[in-house]
Structure formats: C-alpha cells, structure tokens
C-alpha cells in the first residue's frame, strides 16, 4: 500500500519507490530508500505525513507519498 494509507504509530518498511528522476533523488537524499524501516508518527488529513527514519523526523507531502510503497511491519 501507499505510505499515505499507513496508520499512525505503526512501523512500515519501504518496498518500492517510483516517480521521476527528480523525485527519486529528492526522496533518497532525505534518507528514504527501499528496505528502510519507517515509523509513522502522524498521518492526519490535510497535513503532510510525519515519519521517523534514520534518526530523523521527516514530513512528506501526501501527494508525494503515493510514490512510496510500503508493507506493514507492526
């Protein structure tokens, strides 16, 4: 499923990142890569999704999240 559908307070793992070269480079450079585990901190309507990964709290626009496929870990 897409990251924007993930439940808050859950743990997910990135399975696939798709999008144009620019999006790929942006998302990689902030530390989100396939295989990395993300903790979903908040996922509220009309707000960016808030995840925690590689020691960093990251805010991701909901639309951009559609390019990030995740599987639920817990």
């Amino acid at each position: 499923m897409s990251l924007s559908e993930a439940k808050a307070n859950g743990e997910v793992r990135v399975s696939r990142i798709s999008g144009d070269a620019r999006f790929q480079s942006r998302i990689t450079s902030i530390g989100i890569t396939p295989g990395c585990a993300l903790r979903v901190i908040r996922n509220d309507r009309n707000r960016p999704v808030l995840v925690y990964s590689r020691n960093t709290m990251i805010a991701l626009n909901r639309k951009e999240c559609s390019g990030i496929e995740v599987e639920v870990l817990s």
């Binding site: 620019r22 902030i30 960016p48 960093t56 709290m57 990251i58 805010a59 991701l60 626009n61 951009e64």
Partner: peptide
C-alpha cells in the same frame, strides 16, 4: 513545485 519533503529538526 514539489510537495514538502522536509525534515523536522530537533
């Protein structure tokens, strides 16, 4: 125009 991909620093 890219949506926010930003870290929230401590």
């Amino acid at each position: 125009r890219y949506g926010m991909i930003m870290e929230l620093p401590p």
